[in-house]
Design a protein around this nucleic acid. Sequence first.
DNA 1: GCAATTGTGAAACAAATGTTGCAAGCGGTA
DNA 2: TACCGCTTGCAACATTTGTTTCACAATTGC
Lengths: 302, 302
Amino acid sequence: MERPPLADAIIRSFDSYSAEVRKAARFVLDNPRDVALLSMREQARRAGVQPSTMMRLAKQLGFDGFEPVRDAYADAMRNPANSFERKARDQQRLQDLGGEQALAAKIVASVTRQLEALSAAEQLVRLSDAARLLAGARRVYCLGLRASHPIAWQLNYILSLVGDRSVLLDDLANTGSDRIRFAGPEDVLFAVTVMPYTQLTLDVVDYAHRQGVPVVALTDSPVSPLAKRATITIATTTESPSFYHTMTPAFALAEILAVLVAGQGDTETLDALRQVDSYHASLGTHAAERPFPVARPPKEVQ
Amino acid sequence: MERPPLADAIIRSFDSYSAEVRKAARFVLDNPRDVALLSMREQARRAGVQPSTMMRLAKQLGFDGFEPVRDAYADAMRNPANSFERKARDQQRLQDLGGEQALAAKIVASVTRQLEALSAAEQLVRLSDAARLLAGARRVYCLGLRASHPIAWQLNYILSLVGDRSVLLDDLANTGSDRIRFAGPEDVLFAVTVMPYTQLTLDVVDYAHRQGVPVVALTDSPVSPLAKRATITIATTTESPSFYHTMTPAFALAEILAVLVAGQGDTETLDALRQVDSYHASLGTHAAERPFPVARPPKEVQ
DNA sequence: GCAATTGTGAAACAAATGTTGCAAGCGGTA
DNA sequence: TACCGCTTGCAACATTTGTTTCACAATTGC
């Protein structure tokens, strides 16, 4: 299914839909396969919408009911964008369209391969060990400077959603890491740096290590200078076909780690999320479209 | 669906089936797609067989009923790339792992699949279009708040390595986006937000749009509120098996986009990188692990 | 050739499906 | 305030679904 049947039509008239119908349309756009594979009611459920709304969407698209819509999507799935054929064609197009898109595709391929490798057994063990360590900590100090900033920030952000134990060691006026002074053996320092290693990060980790603070290191090698000081080292790759190394695998790891740590909280996590939700609701932080990040009933949280 | 789920099992025991069940099995083998897309009764009709016979086939295959069979085929259709074999293997491994590691593995798998999708032809076209637009801009304003911060930050960071045209619209004291006042039609605003959309981001984009500033939007749907104001919309997914949506695909996109933009600079980019290198060398930002100054052309800079 | 076993078709079931109609809710207008 | 049109959720509808049951037919072994 290269281009889902009604995608264009939906996008074109999306603005004229009502709020609920939009939710339905969103679902259809995002999950074209499920339109054919799931019952309408099930789709309504997942889209967070009444079955009647799916009907309304179908009718607004000019159909008698939802079944014809399903049929359209089923047809599209029957003659598959023959993955073989299509890949060949895509490859061909890359050749034609020159270096830029080819480079982008190469990077995607490279990063994808690196991500896949993250599900190696030992990685998972490391991750869950690290999660347990972080979950048990009084406070979690997050440190990632320069290129590693997004990674540390992301961990701190997600942890901050579900509690107040996380501290981001970053600030204006070069005072970011000062708060590490208050860390002790019952805390944990989460530190990120990859080659070329940021000196300040190493220094702070060194200090924390001497103070007996356990360290979870996210870095690019088990023999990186960070790893030496770390209680647990999570290693990832940063290779990229371009001039700039990629931080995407590290970012993914931090995200997963954060989710695992939050998951250890269980009910407290859910409470905190609900609280975050109502907080932002009363502040009007978000454009009103759907409740906070809990996209679906959070039954998968553990 | 390279290899239909139960093909092997069916072929293996085909001979032991009765005449009617064989008809059913034959149909399943010949029309694997229809197994997922049609109702069981309809399949029975087409196979020239009673519904009960389909049931019997399912039970002979070791299932409780026909629905699980359908599910198996539906799963196979959802990610055509993943061969059945591989999925089975992954599934097996998940069983062996604890809930926590299983969740981690699931997230990795999900994100990997989403990343793969980024190399679709239209995505690449969008990316390179966006890159061209950004490369031609006088200034590039980067805006991403809350969960989208790492994405905007990353683009700004990489662009800052190779020039001084990038401005991050973020700051202390809620003054972050003020500088958008200076943007005009010869600049570009790069804005990121996903559901639930940050109101301030939408407002700023709105303002910039009215000022005639071209907008490159990185968001989660072609019908997101961001997309309406955007000159070019790059859409990505954020689904995750966990309670928190993933920003990893968006992060990867930003990284790639940044690299493409930097690549347009060519010689200037290389000059800038060399300069960055010597700058950090003289400040001692990085731990000297690598021979310094860089012997080879500096293709990797932090 | 008969009994026992197996395979088959038809009818019946509850559950789930697609669809419809209606009343309550909402925001804007007179 | 009363009214309007539009949107939304709910309950009900007739079908259709997957599944079970059972009587009958076919096949088998003796």
